[in-house]
Design a protein around this nucleic acid. Structure first.
Lengths: 335, 335
DNA sequence: CTGAAAGCGCTTACAG
DNA sequence: CTGAAAGCGCTTACAG
């Protein structure tokens, strides 16, 4: 386990060429004219000594780290796990490596401090809200950044998913089953995804010629979803189906329905956004809308590698969005 | 969003001191004797210019990257998400940053290639098996490494959890409820955790004076768990309780029980290892054994920072292991 | 108490 | 077609 301290100079000496030649061979410099046998000698020396370029020296020289950072609220949230998976796959394809940080570690501020200068060539932020001062803090650090799943005037660079279409898909599914009273268990006011899903719900209800409501907001947690669903069920005319903005809320909502003595889907249908693995483990298995989360991560990395330093971007990712029907939705009860 | 290209020299010029002084002030060099007003001037210049040390230059000079790598099979697996959380928290406390890689990206080989030389000061591997050549590959790269959750003769550095104790806790819980026929839905033969959990099951059964079996192995997936449980239920005298080595298997096992027309926990009790969030979302909520996964990640990072290059370690983490009782276990049916 | 200088390992524009 | 040289930004042993 001893540190291999093989440098370019060692390889050059063994291959009897200059370090510059080794560098260009290793980096596959196309402008290098070299005799095949010389190249072979260099490659053999690299192999024999087990030479691996020192990334610090290379980064210092080229001012490129070949790393991207990605910051998420929580690794244990499967939504962000999917985004990271996509980001890592694309980074790997580009020969980049990912430096991950989460709010459960030491927060974004601590993360950026530890990043220092020049550690990453760009930073992806998922699940950040419109925290005041955030954009300024990012800009001051001088690191190109892109925000995922959140857009607003102050955010110059963002990629989001088509949450409105996801909501429409859910509502259309319920309407097609024959539901007329379709409620909406919305997300928290602060979350940008929640706003877009609610807008999509309203638009889809209008398109279907259905009256909106009831609408109750909750944070993206089971406890929040349970409380909101209890409120909804207490209404004079409770809905026969509910579009829930988030799987975590839906878990609580299902619990609340069960507590109220109602049966899913016979008496009430539920559909939620994000087709996480656990949706199929719930009872009954939850009908969901699948969004291209990994694709969002991929796209973020692609743009980070491509964008000019001052280029703005506000993209709605054009990926596949599908309704995954399971056992939590069915036609409404006949009165 | 322009790149801040402020260097030590800029700060030194503004503060009218040498770069060396700035360096030592920034790094809080205790041996530096400096007049308070000079230090103030330096700090003010740092602040005014927004100076952040260039990590590539620092790494090149000191031969320390202040980064650790962590490689897992899959970010979306909540077991590894927990380990990463712990590792990140400890890394942050040390001023380190984490470079994550997963098998869904480009595999360990690709990850290590992209890491190059000197990018990380150490590497944590979680969920790796006893792949042949793995240890050699790691050693050749010259990066200190520690394997998490896997130990064997060839692995010189490992930290594992006390899987035997976890198994014992589960078996004791079932025995205390009055079960006599306690089956074991084991993990795959290749998995080291599975071996230790099975050993713990056998020892605990012996201690309880109970006959072993039935024992059926499955991989750590719902499908595998379902098939194994179906086999177990088809036995002449099926068990009244089952200790399942893994939550994913348990999900499938519960499904199989339901398909067989049996009720949990009235007719059969189930307890599984790892207290993941989703355990409480299952129906019925799953009784589990909680293992200190985050602590495992923390400990790995701590050791990585502390161990001598050639020091070996084979540690069984001494963290809290608890039985979390939910609704999937109860006394056996009275015949 | 503070500064000058060397050098970490690489890349690249340039000279021959 | 190949080599010599400068320099990226920092740290640290040493000189004054």
């Amino acid at each position: 386990m001893k540190r291999s301290r093989v440098t370019l100079a060692d390889v050059a000496a063994l291959a009897r060429v200059d370090r510059a030649v080794v560098s260009r061979v290793v980096n596959k410099d196309a402008t290098l004219n070299i005799r095949p046998e010389t190249r072979e000698r260099v490659l053999a020396a690299v192999e024999q000594l087990g030479y691996r370029p020192n990334v610090a020296a290379r980064s210092l020289r080229t001012a490129r780290a070949h790393m991207f950072g990605i910051f998420v609220p929580d690794f244990a949230n499967p939504v962000y796990a999917e985004i990271i998976k996509g980001a890592e796959a694309e980074a790997a394809a580009q020969g980049y490596v990912l430096v991950t940080g989460s709010a459960t570690g030491a927060g974004l501020g601590g993360y950026m401090d530890r990043l220092g200068q020049g550690r990453v060539d760009g930073l992806l932020l998922a699940g950040a809200g419109g925290e005041s001062g955030l954009v300024e803090q990012l800009d001051r650090a001088g690191i190109p950044w892109i925000m995922l799943n959140h857009r607003s005037r102050s955010v110059r660079r963002s990629v989001v998913l088509d949450d409105e279409r996801a909501a429409a898909l859910a509502v259309e599914h319920l309407a097609r089953l024959g539901h007329r009273r379709i409620g909406h268990l919305a997300g928290p006011a602060g979350a940008d995804t929640a706003t877009r899903r609610s807008a999509g719900y309203s638009a889809a209800m209008r398109d279907a010629g259905l009256p909106e409501g009831p609408i109750v907001a909750a944070d993206y947690t089971p406890a929040g979803g349970a409380a909101a669903m209890a409120t909804m069920l207490a209404a004079a005319e409770p809905p026969t189906a509910v579009f829930v903005a988030n799987v975590a809320s839906a878990i609580g909502a299902m619990e609340a329905v069960r507590k109220a003595g109602l049966e899913i889907p016979r008496e009430i249908s539920i559909v939620a956004v994000h087709d996480l693995d656990l949706a199929s483990y719930l009872f009954p298995a939850l009908t969901t809308v699948r969004m291209p989360l990994a694709e969002l991560g991929r796209r973020g990395v692609t743009l980070l590698g491509r964008l000019q330093p001052d280029e703005a971007v506000a993209e709605v990712l054009d990926g596949p969005i599908d309704l995954i029907q399971r056992r939590s939705t069915a036609p409404p009860p006949t009165p």
